[in-house]
Design a protein around this nucleic acid. Sequence first.
DNA 1: TCTGGTCAAGGTGGT
DNA 2: ACCACCTTGACCAGA
Length: 302
Amino acid sequence: MRIGYPCINRRLDCTSAKKFRLASFNDERFFTTVSGNLSCFRQILAWNVTHNILFFRISSDIIPFASHPVCSAPWQEHFSEELERIGHSIRDAGIRISMHPDQFIILNSPDERIVSRSVDELAYHATLLDLMGLGTQAKIQLHVGGRYGDSQESIARFVRVYDTLDPAIRRHLVIENDETRFSATDCLEISEQTGIPVLLDVFHHACYNNGEEMGDMLDATGRTWGAADGIPMVDYSSQHPAKRPGGHAEHIDLSDFRQFLELSQPFDRDIMLEIKDKETSALAAISLLQKDPRFERGIGRG
DNA sequence: TCTGGTCAAGGTGGT
DNA sequence: ACCACCTTGACCAGA
């Protein structure tokens, strides 16, 4: 069991997701920005290791506009050595990496231009992971997409597109339930047809479900991960009291988290905390986990 | 130096 | 057909 947080460390005076406006794109700006992002990424990883945080989600903005037509700069070659070095240090430390392309990346759109752009963006994610040599345990988590008024047909369209994807993308790709469109059960149906692993978003499942028990869903989604996929990942958050249902909490709710740990007791999972205060909640979660044998095993794994 | 309108990209639901 | 909202941080133009 590892604990992770996404993209940003608020205690460090740097960001690994610096970007700029499309209108001001030029190669110099691009390379300078990526260099800064990678430098901050290394700092975050080092900070994480000293705090036993061995799971981290890389921001899709670490290479801004990487899959956009405006970007013809050969970033793969330009940064290959640096990425390889970073990848070595990630593997040496036993760190797990994930990525989460944003809401515009949709494989089941009826508009093939949207699908094509989405595939390009996924290819960028996979290339980045591969340049770091992170292997198939590094995952790109994606939502199923839109319903377009017909969930079954939209699921079928996802399956059809998935089957055409380059294996270089598929080996990293997992799907995740969302809080309004496709439930964990929908994802399991897709998994049965494609073999794709299902990442359970615990909070989204609580928001949107068909009455399935959380424990059963943890079990069922975990079984979709093969040996090469590594320990199943889950996303965890809790409800922000003031926000609409589905709004992420500002800080981890430790009593809720303790209940989740209890519930998940039979299973080993890498837990991504989708919580606003990022590393602060990760530290709190870890302090709660000191005596959990699943976590101790994780630290020893190196 | 500070502020707030705006940012590559889509989907959904209300009108 | 059109618009606000989803959700997020931060860019950047203008004060």
